[in-house]
């Protein structure tokens, strides 16, 4: 470097012209290198854009039209009128509120149950692998099947297990899904999502340095004190990740609601409402598209928060 500087002092003009040529050449090489790395992933990229972004663009376009199946002029362009009607649509606001309650309760519930299960599993015992597999199975059940199982075998007042237990206790069995539609759906969601949270939290627990826990014991901390002061802060990124992924998925829940409670207003969330307004018989495709866009935007915001959480998690590891 210093040699170049001295040369430049002696013979400024020619050197700097040469330097410029060198810099340009370097840049060209860098660019070529960039493309060489990009080209192999191009097909995948194009495919991804085609299948995800094009439907989205169509939805965006529909959301600006008054498209419904029963009007003579199906694609009248009405700009943001659909969006404007959002705030006045009390059904929309109701289902948005249901969505919020359902997501928050299901995520928190499954997080708490999952953490509990993870703590129980985070020790060595005979048959550990088998028990873990058993605990994971709810997550592997198809949502529709899970819904049917709970509706018929648990909640049903005549044949359901809950009804039977209440009968044994001398209580009058109730039709759970009808009386408490939101709670019923949340219970099934917690049942199905706890294993997922368990796996995430278990990864966090098993990544802990054992000697740190031993140090806490030697330092006089109780089990609960160790959990609260040492383990929980270390689990935080894992809990955040679980919250995020759970929320993104649970905002979109549809199958469980359809199967367990049908269209009962108490458990009608946004996806259910949107489906109802479009393919479910409302046939208001333009309006529903606008609603979907709103849901997508909300999800993107959540996903962004989540990505930040995730990158923090990875940074901490290095």
């Amino acid at each position: 470097m210093s040699a170049v500087t001295v040369d430049q002092l002696n013979d400024g003009g020619r050197q700097s012209a040469e330097d410029q040529a060198r810099a340009a050449e370097l840049k060209r090489l860098e660019r070529r290198d960039g493309w060489r790395r990009r080209i192999p992933i191009l097909p995948a990229l194009i495919y991804t854009i085609l299948v995800t972004q094009i439907p989205f663009l169509f939805t965006l376009f529909y959301s600006l039209t008054d498209w419904r199946i029963d009007t003579p002029d199906p694609r009248q362009f009405i700009w943001f009128e659909n969006y404007g009607s959002l705030s006045g649509d009390t059904f929309f606001l109701d289902s948005a509120w249901v969505s919020v309650q359902m997501t928050v309760m299901a995520v928190l519930g499954s997080l708490i149950v999952g953490t509990g299960l993870a703590i129980l599993l985070d020790r060595k015992f005979f048959g550990q692998g088998f028990v873990r597999t058993l605990l994971i199975t709810p997550f592997l059940v198809m949502p529709v099947v899970a819904g049917l199982m709970w509706k018929l075998q648990m909640f049903n007042s005549t044949f359901g297990i809950i009804g039977w237990v209440m009968n044994q206790l001398g209580l009058e069995p109730v039709e759970f899904a009808t009386r408490f539609p939101l709670a019923s759906v949340v219970v099934v969601l917690i049942w199905q999502w706890s294993p997922f949270m368990m796996l995430i939290v278990l990864a966090g627990l098993q990544g802990q340095d054992q000697s740190v826990l031993e140090a806490a014991r030697v330092d006089g901390a109780t089990s609960w004190g160790t959990f609260r002061q040492i383990t929980l802060p270390q689990l935080r990124p894992f809990l955040e990740l679980g919250t995020l992924l759970g929320a993104i998925y649970l905002i979109q829940v549809y199958d469980h609601i359809e199967v367990i409670v049908g269209g009962q207003p108490g458990a009608r969330n946004l996806p259910f409402y949107i489906a109802g307004r479009s393919i479910g018989g409302g046939n208001r495709f333009g309006l529903s598209s606008a609603y979907s866009i709103v849901v997508v935007l909300a999800s993107i915001i959540i996903a962004n928060i989540g990505l930040r959480v995730l990158s923090n998690l990875l940074e901490d590891d290095s």
Binding site: D209, S211, V212, E214, A215, A216, V218, D219, Q229, I230, P233, Q234
Partner: peptide, 12 residues
Amino acid sequence: AMVFQNYALYPS
């Protein structure tokens, strides 16, 4: 009081 080989400091 114990000093561990990897120090076992409380990371948080």
